[in-house]
C-alpha cells in the first residue's frame, strides 16, 4: 500500500466514522405551520392564471404539455383523488403539519414527516441513513426522501416521484424523473421551505422557490383530506375513455398574460432567460403597463391596510382575501 493510498483510506474511514455520529445541530420542527399570504399573494392565495407560466424555466416539451391542459382535466373521475406533486404546497394556501418518528429505544429521530392536506399523501424524510430504493421500485405520491442536518437546516433529497402538475391549476408539468433538494429552516416561529427542483424532461434549468410558514401553536393536530371520493362532475366523460384537453394552438388562454398585463409572451410562456433581472433591460423600452387593473390589483399589504401599499387601487379578487384561512380552504377544496 502506497503512502497516498494509505492516507486516502485513512481519510475515508475517518469520514465514515465521523458520519456515524449524529449531527449535533437538530432543530425541533414538530408542529403546525400556517401559510403567510402576504408573500406571493396571488400564487398562494387565489392562484395563478391559466396560461401564466412566468417564473418557470420550462422546456418546449413542458409548454406543449401545459398548453394542452384544461381545468376539466383534474375534474375527471380518474384524476379527482390523485395526489399532487410533493411540494406543490408552496403554491397553495395550505398549512403544513410536521412530526417526527422516533426510535423507541434511543429516542433518536428516524424520520420527519411533513403533511399537507393538499397532497393526499405525506412526505417522509428518512434520517436513519437508509439508501434510496431502486429505480424499479414503486413510487409513493410523496416520493422518497432522505435528509441530514446542515447546521440548523434540514436538507432533504427526494427521488421517486410521480408525474404530476407541479404548480396549481394551470397544468405546468413535472415528470417522474424529477428530483428535489429541499431545505427546511426554522427561524424562531417561522419556517422557510426552499425547494430546488430539477427535471430533465420539463425544466431547462433548476427551478428554485422558497416560501415561509408561521408556527401556529393552536393549529389543527391532524391533516385533513385523509379521505377522498369521486363524483361525476362532467357527465359526458363518464365511461367514455375521453380525456379533456386542448389541441395544439387552440388553448384560448395562451395569450392571457399578454392581453391582460401586456407581459411579453416569451415571459408568460416560461422561457428561462426571462427569469433573470437582466431581462427587464431588454423590455424596458417596449413594455407598456396596462392602462388599468381589473383583477388581483391588490396584494396582501393593500388588503390589510398596511404601510407601503400602492395608492388608489381598486381591489377585485372576488373577495378571496376576506374569506380568512378556513374560508379560503373551503373555497379551494370546492374548486378541486
Amino acid at each position: 500500500m502506497t503512502r497516498t493510498t494509505f492516507i486516502t483510506a485513512l481519510t475515508t474511514c475517518s469520514a465514515l466514522l465521523i458520519a456515524a455520529v449524529p449531527a449535533r445541530a437538530q432543530v425541533q420542527l414538530t408542529g403546525t405551520y400556517e401559510d403567510r399570504l402576504y408573500e406571493d399573494y396571488i400564487e398562494r392565495g387565489p392562484g395563478s392564471d391559466l396560461g401564466d407560466y412566468t417564473g418557470m424555466p420550462m422546456t418546449d416539451e413542458a409548454r406543449a404539455k401545459a398548453l394542452s391542459y384544461t381545468s376539466n382535466m383534474p375534474m375527471t373521475i380518474e384524476r379527482q383523488c390523485l395526489s399532487q406533486a410533493p411540494w406543490v404546497g408552496l403554491y397553495r394556501p395550505r398549512l403544513y403539519r410536521i412530526w417526527s418518528i422516533n426510535d423507541e429505544t434511543s429516542g433518536n429521530v428516524i424520520a420527519w414527516v411533513v403533511a399537507g392536506n393538499y397532497l393526499r399523501d405525506t412526505i417522509t424524510i428518512w434520517m436513519d441513513g437508509r439508501e434510496h430504493p431502486s429505480e424499479n421500485a414503486w413510487r409513493p405520491s410523496g416520493g422518497f426522501a432522505t435528509g441530514k442536518w446542515e447546521g440548523n437546516t434540514l436538507t432533504a433529497r427526494m427521488t421517486h416521484v410521480k408525474t404530476a402538475w407541479i404548480r396549481r391549476g394551470n397544468g405546468i408539468p413535472g415528470s417522474d424523473r424529477t428530483t428535489f433538494t429541499v431545505h427546511l429552516t426554522r427561524h424562531d416561529d417561522l419556517l422557510t421551505v426552499t425547494v430546488i427542483q430539477e427535471d430533465p424532461i420539463y425544466l431547462s434549468e433548476p427551478h428554485v422557490v422558497s416560501r415561509v410558514w408561521q408556527y401556529e401553536p393552536n393549529g389543527r393536530q391532524g391533516p385533513e383530506r385523509t379521505q377522498c371520493n369521486t363524483a361525476n362532475e362532467i357527465p359526458y366523460l363518464e365511461d367514455s375513455g375521453l380525456v379533456p384537453h386542448y389541441l395544439p394552438g387552440e388553448n384560448p388562454e395562451e395569450d392571457f398574460m399578454v392581453r391582460t398585463y401586456n407581459i411579453p409572451k416569451e415571459a408568460a410562456m416560461g422561457h428561462a432567460h426571462t427569469l433573470y433581472p437582466e431581462y427587464r433591460n431588454t423590455i424596458r423600452d417596449t413594455y407598456v403597463p396596462p392602462a388599468s387593473c381589473g383583477r388581483y390589483c391588490c396584494g396582501w399589504i393593500e388588503r390589510q391596510g398596511l404601510p407601503g401599499g400602492a395608492p388608489n387601487l381598486t381591489c377585485n379578487d372576488g373577495g378571496f382575501a376576506e374569506l380568512g384561512p378556513r374560508g379560503r380552504r373551503l373555497m379551494e377544496e370546492a374548486s378541486e
Binding site: 456515524a20 449535533r24 433518536n108 429521530v109
Partner: peptide, 16 residues
C-alpha cells in the same frame, strides 16, 4: 421565541 433545539443524541454504536 428562540428556535427550539433537539437534544443531540449519543453516537449510535450500531452505526459506528
Amino acid at each position: 421565541m428562540t428556535t427550539p433545539q433537539v437534544k443531540a443524541p449519543r453516537p449510535n454504536p450500531v452505526a459506528l
